[in-house]
Simulated assay, not measured.
Amino acid sequence: MTSETGSRSLRQLKVDFIAFMEQVHRALGFDANLISVLFSLLMEERYLTQEEVMDLSGLSRASVSENLAKLTDPASKFPVLVTRLPGDRRKHYYCPLEFDEYIRTFFVEASAATDFGTTFIPPILERLETLDPDDPAVDYVTSFLRYLLSVTEFYDEFIAKSEKNLKLVFENIDHKLDLPKPEIVSDKRSSGGLVARSRKVEGDSLLKIKRDFIVGMLESSTPTGRRKEPVAVFLTMGLSREPMTQVEIMEVTRYGRSTVSETLTRLTGLGVVNVEKKPGDRKKYYSALIGAQDYGLQKSQMQKGGYSQIVDMIGRRFLPRLREVEGDTEEKERVKVFLEANIRAYQLIVDYVTLLFETFQEWMTDIHWPPRK
C-alpha cells in the first residue's frame, strides 16, 4: 500500500511539473499542448506510447495525436522519433537528442527577432514612395517602417551570431559568455534593405497603407493567446507623428468607441501610453511611449522572469517534494538528476538573456529612431 501511494505521489509530482512547464512556456509564446507532450517525453526519458503521454499530459487522444504528429514531422524544431518495440505492435515515441539541445531551442525560438513576420513591409514601403514625399506624415510612417526593418534585421543577425556561443556555454559551463557584434551596414539599415521602386495602387492613401500595415502585423503575429486589439491600437499610435484622439484611432483601426476606449484604458494602465490635453481643448490625446528597443526590453524581461521562475520553482518546490516521495529509489534519483539538469540549463539561459539584452541595447545606439516633431 505504501509503495502504491508513493508511486502515485511521484506520478503526481511529474504531472505537476509538466503542467508548470506548460504554463511558463505558454507565457513565452509556445504552443501549450505541444509543450505538455514534449515534456512528458523529456521527463520520462524512455519510449512512451500515446496512451502514456495522454496520462502524463492530461490531454485528449486527439490533441496528443496532433502534437505527436507535429513533433515527429521531419521539419520539427523539437525532434521526436517514433518506433516499435519487439513483441509490441503499438507505436512508441522518444526524444533522440540531449536535454540541453531542446532547452537551447526553446531559448532560440523565444528569442526570435520578432513575434511577427516582416516580408509584407517592403511592398508597403513601395506604396509609400508613390505618395507625396513632402508630407511630414508620409515621411514619418516611412521612417518608422524602415526603422522597424533595421531593428529586426540587426536582431536577426545578432541572434544568429550568438547561437554558436550559447552552444559552447552549454557544452562547457566554464566557457566565457561572449557575443560577437554584427557588422552594421549603414546604407542597408537606413533604407531597410530595399531597392526603391514605386508600386502604385489605385486610390491609395496613407490611411489605407496604415490599415494594411496593421492587418499585416496582426496576421503575421505569433499566436500568444492575447487579444489583438491592444496591438492594433498601439501600432496605430506608433504610426502617427502626433498624439491622436480616440476618434482618430477609431478611424484607423475601424474599432468601435467602446473597444478603443477600453483598450486605451488598459494600455495607459500598463504605462505604455501617454495621455495629454491641449489648452482650450477638452479632448484627450494619446501617444505610444515605447519603441522597438523598449519592446525588446519588455520581451527580455518576460523571458528572464519566466526562466527564473523555472529555476526558483524547481529548487523551492519540486526537489523538496521529491525528497518526501516514497517510491522506487532509482526512479527518484533519475527524476532528481532530470530536475537538476533543468535548473542548470535554465540558469544558463537567465544569465545569457541578461547579457544578450545588455549587449543588444549597447549596440542599438548605431540605429536611431527619427525624433517626433
Rank of each mutant, 00 (worst) to 15 (best):
T5H: 12
R11M: 14
L13R: 07
K14C: 12
D16F: 01
A19L: 09
A19Y: 03
A27R: 10
F30C: 01
D31R: 06
A32K: 13
A32S: 14
N33G: 10
L38C: 04
R46W: 02
Y47E: 11
T49K: 04
E51K: 10
E52C: 00
M54F: 00
L56I: 09
S57Q: 04
S60W: 07
A62T: 13
S65H: 12
E66I: 00
N67A: 01
L68K: 04
T72A: 02
P74A: 03
P79M: 06
V80P: 05
L81N: 10
T83G: 06
P86M: 03
G87K: 02
R90C: 02
K91H: 14
K91F: 14
Y94H: 14
Y102A: 07
R104Q: 13
F106Y: 15
F107K: 08
A110E: 06
G117V: 01
I124M: 15
L125Y: 08
E126I: 01
E129G: 03
T130P: 09
L131G: 07
V138L: 03
Y140H: 14
F144Y: 15
R146Y: 06
R146K: 15
L149A: 03
S150N: 02
E153G: 02
F154S: 04
I159R: 13
K167R: 09
L168D: 10
F170T: 05
L177C: 05
L177G: 08
L177W: 05
P180H: 10
K181E: 14
E183C: 02
E183P: 00
D187P: 12
D187M: 14
G193K: 10
L194W: 13
V195N: 08
R197K: 15
V201R: 15
G203F: 04
S205A: 06
F213N: 06
I214D: 11
V215W: 11
S221R: 14
A232H: 02
V233C: 05
L235N: 03
T236Q: 11
E242P: 00
P243R: 05
T245I: 04
V247R: 15
E248C: 03
V252M: 06
T253E: 09
Y255A: 09
S258G: 01
S258F: 07
V260L: 02
T263E: 08
L264T: 03
L270H: 10
V272R: 11
V275W: 02
P279I: 08
D281E: 09
Y285Q: 07
Y286S: 03
G291F: 05
Q293C: 10
Q293K: 12
Q293S: 09
Q298S: 12
S300L: 09
Q301I: 11
Q303T: 01
G306V: 05
S308D: 12
V311K: 10
R316V: 02
R321C: 04
E326M: 11
G327R: 10
V337L: 08
V337H: 07
V337M: 04
E340P: 00
N342Q: 15
R344K: 12
R344T: 13
Y346T: 06
L348W: 04
Y352H: 12
Y352W: 15
F360C: 00
W363C: 01
M364Y: 06
